[in-house]
């Protein structure tokens, strides 16, 4: 140990936790009790009451003794989540619908805000102030991208009108020239 330490930078407490005997190390069950060989038999805490809808993995027989109760499933995203939880964690049909539900939930969140009379300040929520202060280039890029996206959406939505108006102008010019 001392010999090895000679080539080492001056490190306070170098090697104090070295334990060549501890191999293989955590999490290789150093304190293996083999209790799990007896199955699901341990003494459980009191079961927490299910006061809101909890979606349970199909890979366990019950709810865990405690669980979180934040944001129960609801709306379209909730329906997708309920479907996802019918499939085991080993299947993509569990995880991919959950990712889709998360995206649907974002739209639901904006609608919820609007229903409460609150227009979400998406710029502030994205930390635009910090971006403006410390990375102005990215902030301007964000504004430009948003302007471009809104313009593209506007062009798409009103394309018929713009096209028809264009045709009318062309026709008027033709009539004038005649």
């Amino acid at each position: 140990m001392e010999k090895i330490a000679k080539g080492i930078p001056d490190i306070k407490d170098w090697g104090i936790d070295a334990d060549p005997e501890n191999d293989p190390t955590y999490p290789m069950k150093p304190n293996r009790t083999d209790e799990e060989q007896n199955g699901y038999t341990w003494e459980r805490s009191v079961q927490q009451a299910e006061t809101v809808e909890i979606l349970k993995s199909t890979e366990r027989p019950n709810l865990s003794a405690v669980f979180g109760t934040s944001v129960p499933p609801k709306g379209l995203s909730g329906a997708i989540r309920r479907y996802a939880y019918k499939n085991s964690e080993g299947q993509f049909s569990h995880w991919l619908p959950l990712l889709i539900a998360d995206r649907v939930n974002v739209v639901e969140g904006i609608i919820d805000d609007l229903k409460k009379g609150k227009v979400p300040n998406i710029y502030a929520e994205k930390g635009f102030n910090a971006m403006w202060k410390y990375n102005r280039k990215a902030a301007i890029g964000m504004i430009a991208a948003n302007v471009a996206a809104v313009s593209a959406l506007g062009l798409f939505l009103f394309r018929g009108r713009i096209f028809n108006e264009g045709k009318s102008v062309k026709k008027a010019l033709q009539n004038y020239n005649m």
């Binding site: 890979e59 366990r60 019950n62 865990s64 003794a65 405690v66 669980f67 939880y85 964690e89």
Partner: peptide, 13 residues
């Protein structure tokens, strides 16, 4: 832990 997460068995709470 097996008694802190009902939604997944791959990770504890």
């Amino acid at each position: 832990c097996h008694e802190s997460n009902p939604e997944a068995t791959a990770v504890g709470g």
